[in-house]
Structure formats: structure tokens, C-alpha cells
């Protein structure tokens, strides 16, 4: 198999796809540093005088700093609530073998399937009646809930990899369930917690549908703000491109830095179900 096709051909095809993957991003970067007159040129201009005016304008004058703060508050809030809850639950479930535990896990999987739009309507009604539309807690609560099934399943896969003999040894040493968990198991599950936190962060930072409804002028997140720019306005092309790049960069660099962990999180799901 490894010698079936020549290496050069494989490299060529992979490069082609990599180009397909990266072109839209490069194009957007170019738009964001072009003057509008250049951005609309046909054929596209490859050489031009770059400007960072739009990057400056979108962050400094168009309130993107504020939206970034909102996004950060919501994403971190989600991680700090969702991951501990999910970790506890996942530990319990990884050590339970009863039928009920198994049904509960299946139940979580079914909940993971629910169309988000279906959840959004009652969320909206409840948040409305509690006067919580356009507040951080509403959005964080929604994100935590949406995130729970996945968090539990993912963390459980990590706990399953920690041998049970350790729990048993700890019990013999006089630990109860709680101290076994905190003193023996949790330290070993650190990589899993990193991975799970990364996924929760990604989910909350990227979320759009819920943010569109549950956030408002006070708590608007970056995805909602950028959709309002680039969704329609070609006049604001350069500006929205600058905004889009600005939203992408922090999370992209962060995630690429932790890429090894991400890949592990994705693949552990595939193997353990």
C-alpha cells in the first residue's frame, strides 16, 4: 500500500487540498489589509500597499474590544462551570457498571442529538420570563447545558484509561470515594481535563445561534458582531475582514498550540465511543 502510488503524486494531491483549505483564509487576510479600491479590483491585485487601518478601526473604534471581553467572559464562565461538573459526573459514571449508569450515558447521547433550535425556544421563553435576556448568566447556563453530554462522555473516556486497581488500592489505604477521586485519580486525569476544557472553550467561543438570541447590546459576542458586519455589507468589506481575522487568530493560535491535545480528544472519542 505504501508504495502503491508514487510519493510525489500523494504530496501533490495533499498540497492541492491544503491550498483549498487555506485559500479562503489568505484571501480574507489580503482583503483586510487592502484599500477598498484594491479589494474590488478585477483581476485581483496581488501587489498593493498594505494598510492596518481597518484592524485598528474595528478594535478601537467599533467596539470589538468590548465584544471580545463578552466572548471571553462567556467562554471562561462556561469552562469553569461545565468542566468541573462534567469531570465529577464522568468519574462516577466511569466507575459505575450498573444498567442504570449505562442507560444514563445513552440518555446523554440522545440529548446530544437534540436540535439546538428546539432548545433555544424554551430557553428564550424562560430567560424572558426571568428578565435574563442579554445577561451573561443566561448565555453561560445555556452553554454549560449544551456542553454537558459531550464533556461527560469525553472525560469518561479518559477516566476509563486510568486503571481501577488504583481506586481499589486507595480504598485499601483508607480513602473514601471523594478522597480517592481528589487525591489519586484527579491528578492522573489532568491531560483529560486540559482536552475537555479546550473543547468547551472552543464551543462557547464559537457559538452563534444561542448568542444571537440570548445576548444583546450589553453582552454581544464576537460571532454575532461579525455576522452583523460581513453578513450584508460589502461597503464594510475591509472592516469586516479585519474583524473576522481578529476573531479567528487568537483561538486558532491557541488551538494550534494545543493541537496534540485536541487530536487526542477527538480520537479518544472515536475509539471509546
Amino acid at each position: 500500500m505504501r508504495r502503491l502510488l508514487g510519493q510525489p503524486l500523494v504530496v501533490f494531491l495533499l498540497s492541492l487540498f491544503a491550498l483549498f483549505s487555506l485559500t479562503p483564509i489568505i484571501w480574507a487576510v489580503l482583503i483586510s489589509i487592502k484599500q477598498p479600491a484594491d479589494a474590488f479590483a478585477i483581476p485581483p491585485k496581488l501587489f498593493f500597499e498594505p494598510t492596518f487601518r481597518f484592524h485598528y478601526e474595528i478594535w478601537a473604534e467599533r467596539r470589538f474590544v468590548e465584544f471580545f471581553a463578552n466572548s471571553t467572559i462567556i467562554a471562561l464562565g462556561t469552562v469553569f462551570i461545565s468542566v468541573p461538573l462534567g469531570t465529577l459526573s464522568a468519574y462516577g459514571l466511569s466507575r459505575l457498571e450498573s444498567k442504570m449508569a449505562r442507560s444514563y450515558l445513552m440518555g446523554l447521547l440522545v440529548i446530544r442529538m437534540f436540535p439546538h433550535i428546539l432548545l433555544l425556544i424554551p430557553f428564550f421563553i424562560v430567560a424572558r420570563s426571568l428578565s435574563m435576556i442579554d445577561t451573561y448568566p443566561a448565555m453561560i447556563a445555556a452553554m454549560v447545558a449544551i456542553n454537558q453530554p459531550f464533556t461527560v462522555w469525553l472525560m469518561r473516556s479518559f477516566f476509563l484509561e486510568i486503571p481501577r486497581e488504583l481506586d481499589e488500592a486507595a480504598t485499601i489505604d483508607g480513602c473514601n470515594a471523594w478522597t480517592t477521586f481528589t487525591k489519586v485519580i484527579l491528578p492522573l486525569a489532568k491531560p483529560g481535563i486540559v482536552v475537555t476544557s479546550l473543547f468547551s472553550l472552543l464551543l462557547a467561543y464559537n457559538e452563534f445561534l444561542f448568542a444571537l438570541i440570548l445576548t444583546g447590546s450589553n453582552t454581544k459576542t464576537l460571532p454575532v458582531a461579525i455576522a452583523e458586519y460581513g453578513g450584508e455589507d460589502l461597503n464594510y468589506w475591509s472592516l469586516s475582514a479585519a474583524g473576522a481575522i481578529g476573531i479567528m487568530l487568537p483561538i486558532l493560535l491557541f488551538m494550534l498550540f494545543f493541537q496534540r491535545h485536541l487530536v487526542r480528544g477527538l480520537t479518544i472519542g472515536a475509539v471509546k465511543g
Binding site: S131, D134, I213, G216, S217
Partner: peptide, 14 residues
């Protein structure tokens, strides 16, 4: 959409 959602919720953010 934003106006409809905010106002229908009696929210004072506008």
C-alpha cells in the same frame, strides 16, 4: 430581529 427579541422580552437593554 434584535429589536423584536429584546423588546418582546421586556428587556431594558435598548
Amino acid at each position: 430581529e434584535l429589536q423584536t427579541i429584546t423588546l418582546s422580552s421586556d428587556a431594558d437593554s435598548i
